[in-house]
Design a protein around this nucleic acid. Sequence first.
DNA 1: CTCGGGTGGTTTTAATTTGAAACCATCGTG
DNA 2: CACGATGGTTTCAAATTAAAACCACCCGAG
Lengths: 150, 150
Amino acid sequence: MAKRVSHRDSMCGVARPLDAIGDWWSLLIVRDAFDGLRRFGEFQKSLGLAKNILSARLRNLLAHGIMETVPAADGSAYQEYVLTEKGRGLFPLLVALRQWGEDFFFEPDEAHVLLVDRKNGLPVRRLELRAQDGRVVGAEDTMVRLPSAS
Amino acid sequence: MAKRVSHRDSMCGVARPLDAIGDWWSLLIVRDAFDGLRRFGEFQKSLGLAKNILSARLRNLLAHGIMETVPAADGSAYQEYVLTEKGRGLFPLLVALRQWGEDFFFEPDEAHVLLVDRKNGLPVRRLELRAQDGRVVGAEDTMVRLPSAS
DNA sequence: CTCGGGTGGTTTTAATTTGAAACCATCGTG
DNA sequence: CACGATGGTTTCAAATTAAAACCACCCGAG
């Protein structure tokens, strides 16, 4: 972890999160956690990764406060891994990733899982970024501004 | 690349994109591309990564159709790297990553760059996921549904 | 033309990370 | 208490990443 950022000490708002979840597996673990998985063995079976890797990834997610361990759920003395609020904050990112995947990584006729409204089973809308005035804005309509100079 | 997905051949809608951009650097390159960077040297200077790594990442982004090379911009015989439509489709994901980073990786008083509306300089709103009926929905309000069985 | 610096890489080699498998401690049930 | 399941850690080989050296090409000055 903690790949060095060589040319500047303070990482930007995009790079900093990537230090916490910038590897293949972490996001998949988080996604599985959203799907209700909680136990070490469940994650391992679902993702099919080596136990030492899962162990390291969970440790990292814990260290970053994205997941936490809770004592039990079914009374047994084992612990379970659940998302913190910070972890649950990754939901939009996962949706964005999923929608991008659906757009560009599946053939038009290829079946894939859908993210649907629990209430009525209808697919959710597309993620949209809006300006203060409510306009939907794309990359061309935005820019990054440095922190207001002191 | 192409880390093997051991337990199931067909990767899900989240895992498949991660194969293309699931490493630290690729997303940062894409972000820089959104910021207008185009040349090999620009990316290298901005990100401060080894040239062989940048070379490999750009090759990977090209192979996945996320970026493409265009002959020139200022007449010189060099080539430049620009986002394809697929690459531009990553904008919501980058915004989601940035907003999550702002929420949880910065002290409340810590200065950071803002994503603002080009038109009036105001910060953009928060990304929102809406259901068909327009309700803003969170993770608890949604579920994944398997492709409608044949 | 040719010298020299800037650009855009590739090659080489070492260090780090990943992954598979074996090992081990604890839990929980019969 | 025995025994399988759970939840890891350790060990070691393989793959990836990174730093640095090297190299080819473009391009302007002389």
